[in-house]
Amino acid sequence: MKYILITNNDSLLNSSYKNINVVYKNCSYIEVLLRVRAYIHKGHTILTHPLSSSLKPNETPFKSILISGSSKGATDAFSVDIIEQAIEAYKKFPQSNKSLNQKIIDDFKLVDKTVIESAILNNL
């Protein structure tokens, strides 16, 4: 596959995107960032901004990030900068203790999906 979509948003599993391998794991927002960082360290390039949407990292539980499907070999410095800055930004927000009902969870998933699709559908 040409691209990998790292996500903890299961609503993306129902969609089929051309050339994209959707790698889903039921995990936290920060774990998505850390998993993307691991790929970047292996030579993958980040393609969408990890702080996409204006929803704050302690507000929405969902995050989807598109990266290149294959490794370039060398680590991409721009990708490292972007993901490290996002991880730093995440840390400065106090962790949320909000209880979210199913409707709100679904809305957060919807926004995450439409934001990542704004990149996928317009560019790939």
Binding site: L47, T48, H49, S53, V115, I116, S118, A119, N122, N123
Partner: peptide, 8 residues
């Protein structure tokens, strides 16, 4: 302010 980095 698009999400796709190439757009940026």
């Amino acid at each position: 302010e698009n999400v796709y980095l190439a757009d940026k």
